[in-house]
């Protein structure tokens, strides 16, 4: 079976090989997907968020897209700073990436806490999602604040998922910068991010499909109403806890490496 490391190595070699082959883009896409399939990268967070906040397919796409964009940007900034500004003389790369993981963890905590507050406040008087018991007019100015996903929350999770650059993508871009093929290398990094996005999008779709199955299978309307009310709070709590765990891990790594 092809593993993420082998794909990453293959991508690194292709950036300095002569010619611009379409295979290189396919390898980069696969390497990104394989990288995202590995532990981390917010798959469970994405699933929890989309289920808990009543997400749609478009929201899953937003999440995947923001991970891809953030990862490409993050790799670009770190690679440029390493190549032209002697970043390693200022901070060790391992410390920098652990610091970014810490920021990512804090972003997740912030998203979780914000979701919790939103649900606890917004659902105090218990209006169910679109089940037609007439609270709509009373809350005419909410514009989706009380229910459904919100773009800032999704984008925050996406940013946190793409903030830490993958070592392979970083190596590809610095190799491209040194070999005079930075444009090609950046395209490969973007394809790598796209591969990550595809996996997150697929995870989101699976989570939404699973949720729909549960909703359809639910025989008791009361149980379903209760579930739709409790699930967002549970999801927000889960996101907060996961963010806390990510932050703690990053702090632990920072303490041991410094």
């Amino acid at each position: 079976m092809v593993d993420a490391t082998a794909l990453g190595t293959q991508m690194e070699q292709l950036v300095s090989s002569p010619g611009f082959t379409p295979v290189a883009f396919a390898v980069a896409l696969l390497a990104g997907a394989a990288h995202a399939v590995g532990p981390g990268h917010g798959k469970s967070l994405a699933a929890a968020y989309l289920i808990g906040a009543g997400g749609r397919v478009r929201d899953a796409a937003w999440l995947g897209g923001s991970v891809a964009l953030m990862h490409t940007f993050s790799v670009l900034v770190v690679a440029l700073a390493w190549t032209f500004l002697s970043l390693s003389d200022v901070v060790a790369l391992q410390t920098l990436t652990t610091g970014l993981q810490l920021v990512a963890g804090l972003l997740v905590v912030a998203t979780g806490v914000w979701l919790l507050r939103r649900h606890l406040r917004g659902h105090g008087h218990g209006h169910g999602h679109g089940h037609g018991h007439g609270h709509g007019h009373g809350h005419g100015h909410e514009h989706g604040h009380g229910h459904g996903t919100s773009r800032p929350g999704l984008v925050l999770l996406g940013i946190s998922g793409g903030l830490t650059p993958s070592p392979s993508a970083f190596l590809v871009l610095v190799t491209g910068l040194f070999a005079g093929r930075s444009g090609f290398a950046l395209l490969l990094v973007a394809c790598f991010g796209l591969g990550m996005a595809v996996v997150l999008f697929a995870v989101g779709l699976l989570a939404l499909a699973g949720k729909n199955v549960v909703v359809r299978a639910a025989e008791s309307r009361r149980a379903l109403t209760l579930a739709t009310r409790v699930a967002p709070v549970l999801a927000a709590g889960g996101i907060t806890l996961l963010g806390g765990a990510l932050t703690t891990l990053a702090v632990g790594s920072l303490i041991t490496t410094t």
Binding site: D3, T9, F25, P165, F170
Partner: peptide, 20 residues
């Protein structure tokens, strides 16, 4: 292209590396 990519990929030995 994807099929071709899979065909050329030989799983190499794992190089477990922290970011550095």
């Amino acid at each position: 292209a994807l099929v071709a990519a899979l065909a050329v990929l030989a799983p190499g030995p794992a190089v477990a590396h922290p970011f550095g």
